[in-house]
Every structure is written in C-alpha cells, then in structure tokens.
Design a protein around this nucleic acid. Structure first.
Length: 469
DNA sequence: CGAGATGATTTTCA
DNA sequence: TGAAAATCATCTCG
C-alpha cells in the first residue's frame, strides 16, 4: 500500500502538459481549464487513479464497464505512458539489472562436447568428427577401426534425434513467445506494459526453453558416452584371426626375423592381404593397428620363449625358403636365357616336396646357391652371418636380378642354414638357432636394410622399418 | 571347466 | 612417440 500511495502521490504531481483534460464518459465533468484550476485537475486525475486502483474490488461486469470507460478516456495515453515510466523506474528496473547473466559454463561444456562428438555443428558425413575424436581417445591409433558402421549408424541416429528434438523445442519456444507477445500486446491496451517489458518477457521465455534444451543436450551427451563405451567394450572383445591371416603375418615375421618391424606401408599391405584372405564377414577386416598389435605381441612372446616358437620358425622358414628358391630360380633362369616366359622351369618344386625332413638337402642346395660352396661350413655368429648375407644381398644378387625379396630370403636362408648346420647338441636345436638380430640385451639389432616380402616392386636395399620414420 | 593361446589395452621407458 | 613389458579379457581345446 505504501507503494500505491507513493505512485498516487507521484502521479498527483505529474504535469500533464499537452493533454487536454476533459471530462470523460464515466468520469465527473471537468472543471474549467483556464489554467487557474490546478487543484481541480489534480482531483480529476486522483479520481481516475482511484478508479483504477479499486477496479479489482468490483464485480466483473462492473469492472468491465469501468475498464471500457477508462480505455476510452482521453487521458488514457498520457496516464499509460506515465505508469509505464513509473513501472520502469521501480520494480522492473531491479529485475533488469540481473538480466544479463553470463553464459552458463555447463551449457558451454555440453555445446563443446556435442560439437566434438559431431552431434551438433555441420554435418560431416555421419559423424567422422566423432570417429576421429574417438580414435584420438582410444590411444592415438589413427586407423579406421573406430569408424565402425554400427557406431556411425548409432551416432547418426542420436544426431537425428537430437536435431529433431532441438527443432521441436525451438518451434515450441517460438510459438509460445508469439503467444505471450500477443497476449501482452493485448493486455497492454488495459495495463501499462512497455515494449521493453515484452522484450524482457521474451528473454525469460527463451531462458526457460534453453534450460530445457540443456537437458536435451545433457541426455544426448550421455547417450553418446554410453554408445562410445559400449563400442570400446565391443572392441575389447576379441576374435582370433583366421588361420590364413595368422599364416601371412607369421610368414612376414619369420622372414624378417632380423628386424621384425614392418613399416607403415608394409603393415597396410599385410592388413589388406589378411583382410582379403580372411572370410570373416563384413566388418571383420584386419586393421593396421591390429597388425601392429600382432607384431608387438609376437615379438615379445617370441623373445620370451624362443624354444617354443622353434618349430613354427622352422616351418615358416622352410616355406619362405621355397619362395626364395622360386624367385632365385626364376631370376637365374631369366639371366641365363633372358626369357621371361619360363619362370618355373629348372628349379620348380612344390611346398610338399620341400618339407623339413629334407632340410639337409635344402640346406646344401641353398648354401650352394648363395655361397658357391658345397661343403660344410662353420656357422658364424649371427651378426657375421647377417653381415655376409647383407653383402650378398647388396652385391651379388642385386646384379643378378634376383628380385625384390632378397632380404627376406636371406633371413629365411640364414635361419634354415643355422638350423640345419649339421650338428646337434641334443637340446632340440634351441641352442643352435640363435634368433637373428636379437642382440645380447634381448633386443632386435638395428637392421639397416630390411625389406618387404609384401612389396615385390621394391628394390632390394630399400629401408622398410618401423623405426625408419 | 581349467589351462594355455592370443588379441587388446595399459603402463613404462628411452 | 613408438616399442617393450605387463596385464587384461576372451577364445579354444582337451
């Protein structure tokens, strides 16, 4: 009531210059306005205000009639603006001060996350941004394993739901805002509502709706998190590689035993080769990081227990030796006849004909091929052997156009030769075959010229190592 | 069902 | 940052 009295008092003192104060329909007839009747005018305004203030106490019909009368009163515009002004200067100005709140940090976090996950922001072909983010989160493996179709499909689904809901909220917000604005405009005919106040109301509505949107964003983030954790869990579940894939990897490993670190290109080739061979169904291809994992595991497990892998090593060494023999024979044939049309003649043999039980024959045969001697020889230490083979690789056979796979052949041959060098200490050969390239510290020595069995186009001396980059 | 094999992940280190 | 080493979790086989 204090406030009311204050307003009344204030209004009482307001100069209404420019507005002629004439009597209205429902108001007492004005007094004369010769300028000397200020008290009468005040009285007039006081009457109007009194009517406004008591309108709520009246019955609805009575109030309606009174309202209509006041609406039509010629002083109405002047009173309206003054009341607006007063309203502005009192309660509303207080609210206006706290209007510009800083952007919600939580909302910013959510926005950033949704952007990073590829849910909000520009469409990038089904959430590749999210895939990249997930890949980065999964330890930097930048292969495409994370871009699993399921993951992408689910993410796209989340994205669609998010955008649909967001649109719905925005639409609802706009509709409600329009409704409220119309309502306020309508009401502004009967009570003092300034455009500024309408603006404020719109702001309030927007804030309310944005808090709803924040909930939507929050639940979307949660959904993405759940999806991602499930996807990572799924990755943790492993499937054994197919026999063929393991074979390919083992072949590479044992033929590069001196330096079993495939380059990125070699890994890609291996992954491709394994995936082609593998018939595991769609989406079960072997990736580069899987190849890396495989080699990491293999190296460590081989090193830990060389004896256990002896048999396997023999098998693959023999296998690769056959390939080496084929290649060498073809090269020799080519160099002799200069005829590329007879690659298999002269030295043709099948894997079955070249099993381990004939290792001794093979040994002498291969030794002859590479050393020119047919007698027994002392097995040099692995480093010396490596060097000698390196020189063979670099000198003799490059000139003879043996082909691209010389290093791998050399590795294999070294293995075969050392394995079957003609003596046994009765320990199953474990102590005979010292792992190529493994140095005294148990690490693989730096082989400077490892090559790929995968890339036949490659030159014999090309560097092909994980550490080469 | 248990042991060993094996692919994947995490931690450590140079 | 990549590789080694340790560890985890699942698969396979007897």
């Amino acid at each position: 009531m204090d406030e009311q009295a204050r307003i009344m008092q204030a209004l009482g003192g307001v100069s209404l210059a420019g507005h002629s104060v004439q009597g209205g329909m429902a108001l007492p007839p004005p007094h004369g306005h010769d300028g000397s009747d200020g008290d009468g005018r005040k009285q007039d305004i006081g009457d109007i205000l009194h009517q406004i203030m008591t309108i709520t106490d009246q019955s609805l019909d009575e109030a309606q009639a009174k309202k209509h009368g006041l609406n039509c009163h010629r002083m109405k515009p002047a009173l309206f603006s003054v009341l607006c002004e007063i309203k502005e200067k009192t309660g509303l100005s207080i609210r206006g001060a706290q209007e510009e709140d800083p952007p919600d940090p939580q909302l910013m976090r959510l926005d950033n996350m949704l952007l990073a996950e590829g849910v909000s922001g520009p469409e990038k072909g089904g959430g590749s941004a999210a895939a990249a983010a997930a890949a980065a989160a999964s330890g930097g493996a930048s292969d495409n394993s994370i871009e699993h179709s399921d993951y992408r499909a689910k993410l796209t689904q989340i994205r669609q739901i998010y955008h649909t809901e967001l649109e719905k909220y925005e639409q609802a917000c706009n509709e409600f805002t329009t409704h409220v604005m119309n309502l306020l405009r309508e009401q502004s005919r009967t009570r003092p509502i300034s455009p500024k106040e309408i603006e404020r109301m719109v702001g309030i509505i927007h804030r309310k709706f944005s808090s709803i949107q924040m909930q939507l964003k929050q639940s979307t983030c949660e959904a993405v998190m759940i999806l991602r954790s499930r996807f990572l869990d799924a990755r943790r579940k492993r499937r054994n590689f197919s026999k063929q894939a393991t074979e390919i990897l083992n072949e590479y490993f044992y033929s590069h035993l001196s330096n079993p670190y495939p380059s990125e290109e070699a890994k890609e080739e291996l992954a491709k080769k394994c995936s082609i061979t593998v018939s595991q169904g769609v989406g079960s291809t072997i990736t580069v990081s899987q190849v890396s994992n495989w080699f990491g595991n293999k190296r460590i497990r081989y090193k830990k227990n060389i004896g256990k892998f002896q048999e396997e090593a023999n098998l693959y060494a023999a296998k690769t030796a056959v390939n080496a023999a084929h290649a060498a024979a073809a090269a020799v044939q080519n160099s002799q006849t200069n005829s590329p049309t007879t690659p298999n003649s002269g030295f043709q043999m099948k894997d079955e004909e070249f099993q381990l039980d004939s290792a001794e024959n093979k040994n002498s045969l291969l030794t002859n091929m590479f050393t020119g001697s047919s007698g027994s020889f002392n097995l040099p230490d692995s480093g010396a052997m490596f060097m000698s083979m390196q020189s063979l690789n670099g000198d003799s056979y490059q000139g003879a156009q043996v082909g691209a796979n010389v290093q791998s052949q050399v590795d294999t041959l070294r293995h075969v030769i050392s394995q079957t060098a003609g003596y046994s200490d009765g320990l199953g050969g474990n102590s005979i075959y010292s792992p190529h390239g493994l140095n005294a510290n148990g690490g693989w020595q730096d082989a400077t010229t490892p090559s790929s069995v995968i890339s036949p186009t490659e030159g014999p001396g090309s560097v092909h190592s994980d550490t080469s980059n």
